[in-house]
Design a protein around this nucleic acid. Sequence first.
DNA 1: TGGCTAAGCGGACATGTGTCCGCTAGCGTG
DNA 2: CACGCTAGCGGACACATGTCCGCTTAGCCA
Lengths: 183, 183
Amino acid sequence: MDSTRRRADAADNRARIIRAARAVIANADEIKLNAIAKQAGVGQGTLYRHFPTREDLLAEVYREDVDALVAAAPALLAEHEPLTALARWFDRVADYAQVKRGVFAAVEVGVWRDLSAHSLGPIGDALTTLLDAGKADGTIRSDVDARDVILLIGYLTRLEEAEWDARARHLLHIVLDGLRRRE
Amino acid sequence: MDSTRRRADAADNRARIIRAARAVIANADEIKLNAIAKQAGVGQGTLYRHFPTREDLLAEVYREDVDALVAAAPALLAEHEPLTALARWFDRVADYAQVKRGVFAAVEVGVWRDLSAHSLGPIGDALTTLLDAGKADGTIRSDVDARDVILLIGYLTRLEEAEWDARARHLLHIVLDGLRRRE
DNA sequence: TGGCTAAGCGGACATGTGTCCGCTAGCGTG
DNA sequence: CACGCTAGCGGACACATGTCCGCTTAGCCA
């Protein structure tokens, strides 16, 4: 999977699949994997070898967005109190999740897989950073970890478009309250 | 759908499907709808006419369990302070969700459907009762409703078996904290 | 009781995901 | 440059969900 051997066509196919995926996602709102394979001009087997699950593919397609989300964490911490930073980060997640519903679901699954592989993954790391800062200054309860938070905000993927405005941020506040250390 | 006409065979088929579903669920852990149809001795079309989605079927199969959960709410309120009652009710939900993972997911979807039909459904009603009691005595924030809570505890369906003990109750406490009115 | 009518049946079909495996051809080697 | 090894290809296949529609037959009515 690194860069050894047969890279020429394999890497090329991989890139073509990602490009096709972006195209399909942009044009159709239905994301059918075999359609992506077809569009990319490769067999289904090829697609599935490069990206074993739907989530693997989407995670790769939106890697940049994820990176941006991750990078935001330390930046927010530099500017705000830990609790505020976490709240702001939540806001960004909400913004992103609203637009890219399916993607967020994919990211969630990805984070979960990372976790079960005893690694937090980029998003998990970002969250850990935020939580640790809050624990250090006593504003966040000490018995929560990144996985906990991922689970709690997972409702974002199950929210209906119509109720988004009414509930997304509101529930994020409630979660944040639950995470705060109670005086 | 009530009890008019052609009830004889239709109702019979419906009952047979439910029975077959219970049998399949008990024996195999894989729940394949066409297997249930086969076992019930009916066509797939028949199964899907009676239960348009997988969730409809499961919800019916576990109707009794759901009823028990619903009935527990007023009973708990009679014995405990509202906040405690809610906590206990959460415990029951957790117990149930742990054993019947898939079912809980089905129930969640069902509740959601009820909600979009402008009705809370039995579970929603139970939760509303609990929340209202807490709001009345000022222990629960006034800006939450049943749907909010359903969304928040939905993480239960996404928890891995292995992490259940470590997280299920713990997160329920955090949610409860978030629901409390902050002094 | 015999016929009519639509409620209800049931399985073929359409669609989507994910797997498997025989074939192809890129690359290192002599 | 010719050759062989194996990474990688790609599409046929297996399997699940859910839909559709022509046929059957229960129940009402004369």
